[in-house]
């Protein structure tokens, strides 16, 4: 089966964006622009063609732009990596956006660079990094006038190493460019914690949640958290105390996890933004694996399949019920 993929080069993207505005097909265009820190981009929210001048189409597409669809209503052009496209699928299924309102420019993602990790591997400070060049499965790092070749496992974000869906699942155009390299996902490392006795699990998470300052960055950055008002902030009744007491932190993180179950696509934004570096992806991945095992459900890959907590099967597992 052959399919025609409407490709757009990185130079062509600017024209495409302008054309979308000119033809009034979109009210906004979401992309990336250069950040103040090297090797990091920040989201660009273009309201008209001219705004697109700042569009950055080289590399470093960290942010999951689907997040901004919470606030931006109307027809939107949007850049989306594989994981972001899964967020879009989830949001369509959750009734938050309509497919016909989106013009999706897919980024066939080869993994996102983690500058901190790269610097560590190159034994330098992140500020000392001068250049990060992709060479197929490897990276050439230049820092302090020296050049080092590093493997992708040393440079890419952990979540990207075992990404199963680097190619966007839904899109209208697909971006081409030299950062597009074939990706061969590696198997996700076994989470050792899962095999540990329950007391050790408690000890581990206790240590993690103890540090949580309840800044809610994980929630605010999460595209799957789209409620107009988060239940965590409800006080009639109060579901959880707002104070960062450890017990309440436990409750908060479990609430968050239960509420994104089925919508979370493990885009990893929550962990990326956590200021105290709680390994939230461990929780997300456990939940993702459980959903697959229990209900044969994978989030964000199928527009048709019912979300796991909106349906049931009579033969669903119930070995845990007396």
């Amino acid at each position: 089966m052959s399919e025609i993929i409407p490709e757009v080069s990185k130079d062509g993207l600017l024209d495409l964006g302008k054309k979308l505005f000119d033809e009034r097909r979109v009210d906004y265009f979401l992309g990336y622009k250069k950040g103040t820190v090297r090797f990091k981009t920040i989201p660009l929210i273009a309201r008209k063609g001219e705004d697109l001048q700042e569009l950055w189409v080289e590399d470093f597409f960290h942010a999951n732009l689907s997040l901004y669809l919470k606030e931006i209503k109307g027809r939107v052009g949007i850049l989306a990596k594989g994981c972001d496209s899964r967020s879009l699928v989830s949001l369509i299924k959750e009734g938050q956006i309509k497919r016909e309102d989106l013009y999706i420019v897919g980024i066939p993602c080869a993994g996102q660079v983690d500058p901190g990790k790269a610097a560590k591997a190159a034994s330098c400070e992140p500020e000392e990094l001068e250049e990060i060049i992709r060479r197929n499965q490897e990276f050439v790092i230049r820092a302090n006038g020296q050049e080092k070749t590093l493997s992708k496992t040393q440079v890419l974000l952990d979540k990207c190493l075992f990404c199963q869906y680097p190619r966007p699942l839904i899109f209208d155009s697909l971006l081409t460019g030299d950062y597009v390299a074939p990706v061969s996902p590696v198997a996700r490392a076994q989470d050792d914690l899962r095999q540990k006795p329950v007391s050790e699990k408690w000890a581990f998470w206790s240590g993690q949640f103890e540090r949580c300052i309840r800044c809610y960055a994980c929630r605010n950055v999460c595209p799957a958290c789209f409620c107009p008002r988060c239940i965590v902030e409800e006080n009639m009744p109060q579901w959880v105390s707002p104070l960062p007491a450890e017990g309440d932190n436990f409750v908060f993180h479990l609430m968050r996890l239960l509420h994104v179950a089925g919508t979370c696509v493990s885009c990893g934004e929550c962990q990326r933004v956590c200021p105290v570096e709680i390994p939230l992806m461990k929780l997300n991945e456990k939940m993702t694996d459980d959903l697959r095992e229990l209900f044969d459900f994978v989030a964000g890959v199928d527009l048709e399949k019912a979300l796991p907590f909106r349906t049931y099967r009579q033969e669903d597992p119930q070995d845990f019920i007396r």
């Binding site: 456990k286 209900f295 669903d316």
Partner: peptide
């Protein structure tokens, strides 16, 4: 049952 199944595991 679905909700409890996932809750129980988490």
């Amino acid at each position: 049952r679905r909700k409890f199944a996932i809750l129980s595991r988490l």
